[in-house]
Simulated scan of single mutants.
Amino acid sequence: MTVSVEHPLPDSQVVENKNQCTTDELVLDGGFVVPDPVAGGGFDAPEINAFGHTFRDYDVESLRNKQVEEFYKMNHINQTYEFVKKMREEYKKLDKLEMSIWECCELLNEVVDDSDPDLDEPQIEHLLQTAEAIRKDYPDEDWLHLTALIHDLGKVLLLPQFGELPQWAVVGDTHPLGCAFDESIVHHKYFKENPDLNNPAYQTKNGVYEEGCGLENVMISWGHDDYMYLVAKENGTTLPQAGLFIIRYHSFYPLHRSGAYKHLMNEEDVENLKWLQIFNKYDLYSKSKVRVDVEKVKPYYLSLIKKYFPEKLRW
Rank of each mutant, 00 (worst) to 15 (best):
A180F: 11
D182K: 12
D182L: 06
D182Q: 14
E183I: 08
E183F: 04
E183H: 12
E183Q: 12
S184M: 00
S184K: 06
S184F: 01
I185S: 08
I185F: 05
V186D: 11
V186I: 12
V186S: 11
V186C: 11
V186F: 10
H187D: 04
H187M: 04
H187E: 03
H188K: 10
K189D: 09
K189G: 06
K189F: 04
Y190A: 00
Y190H: 08
Y190P: 07
Y190R: 02
Y190I: 03
F191A: 08
F191R: 11
F191K: 09
F191Q: 09
F191D: 09
F191Y: 14
K192P: 15
K192I: 15
E193M: 10
N194T: 07
N194Y: 12
N194F: 12
P195Q: 01
P195Y: 00
P195G: 02
P195A: 01
P195I: 00
P195M: 02
P195E: 00
D196P: 02
D196E: 02
D196I: 00
D196Y: 00
L197Q: 10
N198G: 15
N198Y: 12
N198M: 15
N199S: 04
N199Y: 03
N199I: 01
P200T: 03
P200M: 07
P200F: 04
A201V: 09
Y202R: 05
Q203V: 05
T204I: 01
T204C: 06
K205R: 15
K205I: 14
K205N: 07
N206I: 10
N206Y: 14
G207T: 00
G207V: 03
G207I: 02
V208C: 07
V208H: 07
V208S: 07
V208G: 05
Y209V: 02
Y209R: 03
E210L: 14
E210Q: 15
E211R: 14
E211I: 11
G212E: 10
G212D: 09
C213A: 05
C213S: 09
C213N: 01
G214D: 05
G214T: 00
G214I: 02
L215W: 09
E216D: 11
E216Y: 05
E216R: 08
E216Q: 10
E216H: 06
E216N: 09
N217P: 06
V218P: 07
V218H: 06
M219V: 15
M219S: 13
M219Q: 14
I220Y: 04
I220C: 02
I220V: 08
I220K: 01
I220W: 01
